[in-house]
């Protein structure tokens, strides 16, 4: 490799790194702008209600399905593991702790990203390429207030609620497998859960779901707002919004989990 090749290589890495820094800077400024606008009137309640319905109530079916089957699979797997140690009685708390602390917030967030986050990016992206966002700006109206803030606030409300529903239905999915199919006593399933489950565990799940709500709405809105040109631009933005949101959910889950476990 000659000195010229090495210089070109360093230049390429430098350009990539600067591009990454610029993108990250733009993303954080976008979030900051939205967070500041949340507290500035006028508040758009009608749009907020619409987005709560879109992100929340329309995600119910997928949450109910994934929640119940997650609980069922979990109960099945944990039961056979616990049986090896003769501790089947701990099935209830094992299912509940796994779901409330970990699987509930993460899987709910991933499901909502797939169902609503992608649609959010596509909707905002299409508004961008058809100049609807420019039309708002030209009317001296702040597009962040109309398009981004309602989604972030709606996600902050909908994600914890969806997670709570996921948790509940997951625990009952585990109950169905453990008690109805595998013959455990119903009293053991719930009483052990009451002994081992603390308010702290529920709080961990709540913090996670709140932060996932911000991550998903922020990333999906950002990708739509700064979409490229034409249908291809919107399609790329949608894909990258789902991928980035999902990866960030898992990364953030690890870091938040390790901090909250202390």
């Amino acid at each position: 490799m000659t000195i010229y090749d090495m210089t070109a290589c360093v230049r390429l890495i430098g350009a990539w790194f600067l591009g990454l820094l610029r993108e990250l800077g733009r993303m954080f400024l976008f979030l900051l702008d939205a967070l500041v606008t949340i507290f500035r009137p006028p508040f758009k309640f009608k749009m907020l209600m619409r987005q709560i319905r879109f992100l929340g109530s329309k995600s119910m079916v997928v949450i109910l399905l994934t929640g119940s089957f997650t609980g069922m699979v979990l109960a099945l797997q944990i039961y056979y593991t616990l049986r090896k140690f003769g501790s089947e009685a701990l099935l209830g708390p094992a299912v509940a702790l796994s779901i409330i602390r970990e699987l509930g917030p993460v899987l709910s967030a991933l499901m909502v990203t797939g169902r609503a986050g992608s649609a959010l990016t596509a909707e905002i992206g299409i508004m961008k390429i058809t100049e609807q966002i420019d039309a708002l700006t030209s009317m001296a109206l702040n597009p962040i207030r109309y398009l981004i803030v309602p989604n972030i606030v709606a996600a902050l409300i909908a994600f914890p609620l969806l997670t709570a529903i996921f948790d509940l239905i997951g625990i009952y999915g585990g109950y169905f497998v453990g008690v109805k199919l595998l013959g455990m006593s119903s009293g053991t399933y719930f009483s052990q859960m009451e002994t081992f489950l603390k308010m702290e565990d529920i709080r961990v799940g709540l913090y996670k779901s709140l932060s996932f709500g911000v991550i998903v709405s922020w990333v999906c809105c950002y990708k739509g707002y700064f979409t490229g040109y034409g249908a291809e631009g919107v399609s790329k933005a949608t894909t990258s919004a789902v991928v980035l949101s999902s990866v960030l959910i898992l990364i953030w889950d690890y870091f938040l989990g390790s901090v909250l476990l202390r």
């Binding site: 058809t130 609807q132 420019d134 039309a135 030209s138 001296a140």
Partner: peptide
């Protein structure tokens, strides 16, 4: 800038109506 924008009406290329 918003005060200046309030003096404008804009007809965009494809209309830019809110869907």
């Amino acid at each position: 800038l918003d005060r200046v924008r309030e003096r404008f009406g804009v007809v965009f290329q494809e209309g830019a109506l809110f869907d």
